Amino acid sequence: MRILVADDEPEMTMVLEALLKREHYSVDVVYNGQDALDYGLAENYDCIVLDIMMPKLDGIQALQALRSKNISTPVLLLTAKSQVEDRVAGLDSGADDYLPKPFDNREFVARVRALTRRGGEYTPKVLSAGNVTLDCSTFELKCGSACVRLGNREFQMLELLMRQEGRLISTEQFMEHIWGYDSEAEINVVWAYISYLRRKLEAVGANVCIAARRGQGYLLEETT
């Protein structure tokens, strides 16, 4: 999952980025409201974390602009301002949650996690496809008694394929969702990780494979 963090305090963004990456999110960071708006309009995020007090545009202005463009991404507002009127203004502008500074790191992560489940949809911790399961807590790919632990990028790619089982996912979508907007990674990194995953699926005896559709992308499908 991809998170956009917008805060003009470099020390704060470093902490938030580290917390989120530890939870295996892909994170983009910007330092003013205008960039938050531009990134939010250009990219597909699972959650946006906005500080209210930022240059160029404040968090509420950026949020209002995003909502006016029908961007429905869940938004968590962060601010040192904790007055009731500020909370009301943020929520009335379209924020999904509000967290005043200073806050406990565990609460921040929990609120982001809750927002990425927006809409009350149940998000299982163990995904299944064919005869394999993927444990989202341990990154373990299992088939019967066979088990292999995936690396972070491998896990994110297979998770996306399993959640979208039977649907095509383009190379560009993998790049945007996993490596992020500003990644310097070359597009052939996707092909490399697809190869790694195919070998691991084969190693555990999976009856599903990652199939390629030339010029379209990849999908997970059962083998015959």
Rank of each mutant, 00 (worst) to 15 (best):
V190G: 09
T223S: 10
E165I: 12
Y193E: 15
K142L: 08
I71D: 11
Q164H: 13
M1V: 07
L197C: 11
A89L: 11
E17Q: 10
A80F: 05
T223E: 12
V148E: 07
V84M: 15
N32A: 03
R199L: 10
Q64Y: 02
E17G: 01
D7C: 06
P74A: 08
G151L: 13
L78D: 05
A42R: 14
D92H: 06
S183N: 10
V5F: 06
C143L: 04
G59L: 02
M54E: 09
A114M: 12
A211K: 12
L197P: 09
T79E: 00
L57W: 03
M12R: 01
S82I: 09
E121P: 06
L134S: 03
S145C: 00
C136S: 13
V84T: 15
E23I: 01
L127Q: 06
V190E: 06
E17A: 03
I210C: 02
G205V: 10
T79N: 01
M12S: 11
V189C: 14
E11I: 03
K21P: 02
R213G: 03
L160F: 13
E9G: 02
D96V: 01
A80R: 12
Y181D: 14
L160Y: 09
A129K: 04
S26C: 04
Y193I: 15
A203M: 10
T116D: 07
Y25H: 11
L77H: 01
L201V: 12
L57N: 01
D92E: 15
K56I: 12
S128L: 02
G119Q: 13
A65H: 10
I194L: 09
E85F: 07
D28W: 03
D58V: 02
I194D: 03
I3N: 00
R167V: 05
A185Y: 12
E121C: 10
G217D: 07
I169P: 00
E23C: 01
E43D: 14
G94W: 08
L127V: 10
A89M: 11
V132E: 08
S170Q: 10
E107D: 14
M1N: 04
R22H: 04
V49Q: 00
V132W: 05
